[in-house]
Computed example of a mutant assay.
Amino acid sequence: MSGHGAVMDGVYRYQRHIYDLTRKYYLLGRDGLIADLAPPPGGAVLEIGCGTGRNLIAVGRAWPQARLYGVDISDAMLDTAQASVAKAGMGDRVMLAQGDACGFDAQALFGRAMFDRVFISYALSMIPDWEAALRQAAACVAPGGRLDIVDFGQQDRLPGVWKRLLFGWLGAFHVTPRRELALAIEAMARASGGAAHVRSLYRGYAVRGGIIRL
């Protein structure tokens, strides 16, 4: 278990039991991302930082023909995800594995190296070397596929006191909104020969972006 994995296990060992109930009020934009995934029939969808499995289950319900994969660094979260996936009746459709978002071997974990859709929902803000995780995610996108990301923005069109309070609270959970996220997505698209898309949501509360691999 890496140092960051141990930290995440410590953070979520108990929180994982109420994670989905509490996070639905402030992890905004996740469901819009899922609704827009539109994988091809029988396509493969990978979530990096899959946590409790909540998003993968939602993808499975929205896109019943998709093959679903999830990787997370926290064994505690994966235990919850496995139980949630089984309860949802998707045990035969969802493959989960423990791995570091900054560098995992998708072929070894899942029997495939690339995916039609890769997404990261509110995880880059929790990964110390988030740019390495972004590179890893882009490398997993199949030709013609897409990487989609949603995460905290800089709250630039919201009151300053709101930003100070939110960022202070997030910091207690090892969450740091990435100021350079939009620029990093655009740079990664150029480096990978893809096309970037980035936009602000909810007056800067969140950032939605990604890369289309051409």
Rank of each mutant, 00 (worst) to 15 (best):
P177E: 06
A123C: 08
L78V: 15
P177C: 09
A184T: 03
L78S: 04
G144W: 12
R190P: 00
D100F: 03
W169C: 14
H197P: 00
Q65G: 15
V94Y: 02
R179L: 15
A106G: 11
G70L: 06
R61N: 15
L78G: 07
I149F: 03
V175I: 15
F167G: 06
Y122Q: 10
G160R: 15
D79L: 06
A133Y: 10
R190C: 03
S192C: 09
G103P: 15
W63Q: 11
Q136S: 05
S125L: 00
G171L: 07
A88K: 05
V198K: 06
S125R: 12
F152G: 01
T80K: 02
R93I: 10
T176Y: 02
A66Q: 06
A142Q: 02
I127R: 07
L181E: 12
A83M: 12
L68R: 00
L166E: 11
I127G: 07
G91I: 09
C102R: 12
G89N: 12
P159L: 01
L134A: 05
P64F: 03
L183Y: 09
M126V: 02
A182H: 09
A86T: 04
S121W: 01
V85P: 12
L109R: 13
I185P: 05
M77R: 06
A83W: 04
S74W: 01
A196S: 12
A132K: 15
L181A: 06
A184N: 01
A172C: 11
G153T: 07
M77A: 08
C140Y: 05
D116R: 10
P64M: 03
A81G: 14
